[in-house]
C-alpha cells in the first residue's frame, strides 16, 4: 500500500514526539545524570527531525523510481486490491486467537486454505495443501523439535 511521503513523514514525526515525551517521563536513576530517559529522547528528537524533512520532500532526489503496483493475475486477492496484502498478518492474529481452543491442525488447515485461495490456487491444490501441510508441520515441530503445539479439538494421532 503506497502512502505519500507527507503521510509517512508526519507519522514518524508524531511517533518521535511521543517517544520524546514518553522518555522524558521515565524515572531517573538516583545520583546519576544519565538514565533510561536519555536514549529515547535522543531517538525521539531524531525521528521528529527526519519525519519533518521527509514530509517536506527533502532527500527525495536520492530515491530510485518507484516500482509500479502490479495486480495479481487471479485469485481471491484480485477482488480486494491492495487490502489483500493484509490477509497474512490477519491470519497470524487469527492463529493466536483460536489455536488454543480449536487446536493446531484445524487452525493451520484454515490458514493454508485461505492463503492458497487468495494466491489463486485451484480448489484442488488449495484443499490438498490444507490437508497435507498441517500434519507434516505438526510432525516436524511436535515430534522432532518438541514444540508444545496446542491439541484443541482435534489432537494429532501421534
Amino acid at each position: 500500500m503506497h502512502l505519500s511521503d507527507r503521510v509517512t513523514g508526519l507519522f514518524l514525526a508524531l511517533l518521535g514526539a511521543l517517544a520524546f515525551w514518553g522518555g522524558s517521563r521515565l524515572p531517573a536513576v538516583p545520583g546519576q545524570d544519565v538514565g533510561p530517559a536519555a536514549f529515547p529522547m535522543v531517538i525521539g528528537a531524531g525521528l521528529v527531525l527526519c519525519g519533518t524533512l521527509i514530509a517536506l520532500g527533502i532527500g527525495r532526489s536520492f530515491e530510485a523510481a518507484e516500482p509500479e503496483e502490479q495486480q495479481p493475475s487471479r485469485g481471491l486477492a484480485t477482488h480486494l486490491g491492495p487490502v489483500a496484502a493484509f490477509i497474512p498478518p490477519a491470519l497470524l492474529i487469527f492463529y493466536v486467537l483460536v489455536a488454543e481452543t480449536l487446536g493446531f491442525l484445524p487452525t493451520a488447515a484454515i490458514i493454508l486454505l485461505v492463503t492458497a485461495l487468495a494466491l489463486g490456487a485451484s480448489a484442488r491444490l488449495a484443499i490438498g495443501v490444507a490437508l497435507l501441510g498441517p500434519p507434516f508441520v505438526h510432525l516436524v515441530f511436535y515430534k522432532l523439535l518438541r514444540v508444545p503445539l496446542p491439541a484443541g479439538l482435534l489432537p494429532a494421532p501421534w
Partner: peptide
Amino acid sequence: PRAAAMPLILLLCAVGAFAIGNNPFAIV
C-alpha cells in the same frame, strides 16, 4: 506453485516464532 509454497511459509512463520519461546505473543 507459488500458491502452495507461500501458505506453508506463513504457517512456518507462526510455528517458528512460537517455538522460539513457546509464547504466542511472538506470533503477534
